[in-house]
Design a protein around this nucleic acid. Structure first.
Ligand SMILES: [Zn+2]
Ligand SMILES: [Zn+2]
Ligand SMILES: [Zn+2]
Ligand SMILES: [Zn+2]
Lengths: 130, 130
DNA sequence: AATTTTATCGCAACAATGTTGCAATTGATA
DNA sequence: TATCAATTGCAACATTGTTGCGATAAAATT
C-alpha cells in the first residue's frame, strides 16, 4: 500500500476529531477548519483516514453521513461492529462502543461490514423533556 | 392526520414496489416510471408512503438511500427492526425480515428506530465466485 | 542542504440528489 | 356536479460528492 503523508490539513482534521465527542459530517468539519483547505481536500482526507482505519464512516437513516475516530485501531481484525446512536432532536451521533448486536444470518451470505444505527432521544435531550 | 389520495403516480410507484424483490432507489423508480410524473413528485410520493408506513427507508453505508415495501403493516407497533443486506458487488439491497438483532442499550436512551444493514456478498454473487 | 519523487492540494467544472414556492390540476366527498 | 384541499409540474435552488490536471509540498535520497 502507498505511504500516507502527514499534511497540515490532515493534522488539522485529526485534531478536530480528537476534540469532538460526537461523530462529524463533512460540512461540520469544514466549518471548524476555517478555510485551512479546500472542500475537496476534506473529502480526500476523509477517504484516506477511512482507508487507513483511523476513522470510520457512519450513514444515518436520514441520509446524512458522518465520521468518527476509531478507538480500536490496534485490533487485528478491524471491524466496526458497535452501534451508533443518532438523536432525532439534537442530531448528534455518538459511538456506543459497548453496544454490539448479535444476530443469526442465513448461510450463503458473506458479511463483511455491518452498520447498526439506533435513533431516538439521547440522554441530554431526554432529560430536557422535549 | 391528513387524508392521503390515490393518484395515478402513487399507484404506479406502488406497482413497481410490488413487482420488485429488492429495495429501490429514487433513480431506479424514476427509470421504471417512464415519465409518468416529475422527479419531484417521486420524492413526495416516497415521503408519503414512508409516513403512511407502507414503505420503509433504508440508508446504506455507501450513502445511497433505498426504499422497500413493508410486509408487516398490520402490526400494532410498526417498527422496522429487521436487517437489510447490501451486496457490494451487484448493489442490490434486500430485506431480511427474519434477521433481527438483539442488543443491550444503556438506560437513559430512548430508542425509536433502528437501522441494521449488513454488507458483503449476496448468495448470487457469492456463487458467481467474484 | 539541495535534489528528486510523488502524494497531496487547489481550482474549476461537473454530476447526483434532494428541497422549496407557487400556480395549475385532480381525487374525494358532499 | 360543485367544492375543497391534496397533489402535481415546473423552475429555481441547495447540498453533497466526484473528476482532471497543473501546482505544491512532504519525505526519502543524494
Ligand atoms: Zn439529543
Ligand atoms: Zn463508531
Ligand atoms: Zn450481489
Ligand atoms: Zn426492510
Amino acid at each position: 500500500m502507498k505511504a500516507t503523508r502527514n499534511t497540515t490539513a490532515k493534522t488539522a482534521v485529526l485534531e478536530i476529531f480528537e476534540k469532538s465527542k460526537t461523530a462529524l459530517s463533512h460540512s461540520e468539519i469544514q466549518k471548524q477548519l476555517n478555510d485551512v483547505c479546500d472542500r475537496v481536500t476534506i473529502y480526500r482526507i476523509l477517504d484516506r483516514l477511512v482507508n487507513d482505519d483511523i476513522v470510520h464512516k457512519i450513514s444515518n437513516l436520514d441520509g446524512t453521513v458522518k465520521y468518527a475516530k476509531c478507538n480500536h485501531s490496534n485490533q487485528r481484525v478491524h471491524i466496526h461492529n458497535h452501534a451508533h446512536f443518532s438523536c432525532e432532536n439534537c442530531h448528534e451521533i455518538t459511538c456506543l462502543e459497548n453496544v454490539k448486536p448479535s444476530y443469526i444470518m442465513p448461510h450463503n451470505y458473506k458479511v463483511k461490514e455491518i452498520n447498526f444505527t439506533l435513533s431516538g432521544l439521547c440522554p441530554n435531550c431526554l432529560n430536557s423533556n422535549i
